[in-house]
Amino acid sequence: MNTLASPVPPVLQVDRLTKRYRSGERLLTVVDDVSFSLGPGETCSVLGPSGSGKTTLLGLCAGLDRPTSGSVLLNGQHLGGLDQDRLAELRNRSVGFVFQTFQLVPTLTALENVMVPLELRGKPSRAWAVELLGRVGLEDRAHHYPVQLSGGEQQRVGLARAFVNRPRILFADEPTGNLDADTGETVIELLLEMNRDFGTMLLVVTHDLELSGKTRRILTLRGGRITSDRVPDSLRPPGQVPEQTLSGAARDSAAIESDPA
């Protein structure tokens, strides 16, 4: 593991983040004392079995939910100090989302779906939205409704929408989870390509080992805790230990370190 401190300030810094829910009489800890940080343009996937807290962690990082304790610094702003409307504004200006279920508004055309973030900002740019649709290969499907598009096409519209506001941070929740292998492959390529081109920090929650293998860093979550923080085998320099299992102090140190590889 590389222990050099990042020379630039992180875009996402998570510090001792915990989220608990009450379920009847029981108090469930879904995210348990998690810390890590990611720098600009960095890509990171979060792996883990169902119920390990991946999506909850993503939601907390994106300011979609409030933590029980701990803090999130996103694009230089402490989320805990922002009200819901400031959080929405931050997401609109700096964050992009890709969802497992695509989450297109069924009553809007592909082009209108892509334009929503810009329209919310009051600066709709049709040309830019059309260009992005062209980028994902859907310029001829711009006026189709989601119901008229295949799953892969819907997710490509989702990608175009995620990048339309030129975000510094992109959160993706199982982006290939509802797609077959070939379509998933195409979407991964597009996602990483656009991510590279836009210089976006990417945090992706996935079960897809192929996708996680293409990110520069992999966090593994189990029972709400980070159990490993490693570089994928494909990117690991020769001679480096294949997997670093974190616990105790090692995990804490990982919280303030990043992998510059």
Partner: peptide, 13 residues
């Protein structure tokens, strides 16, 4: 879902 999505995409309440 639509309303929540709009909130995700930055629409204020």
């Amino acid at each position: 879902p639509t309303a929540a999505l709009l909130r995700c995409l930055g629409a204020k309440a």
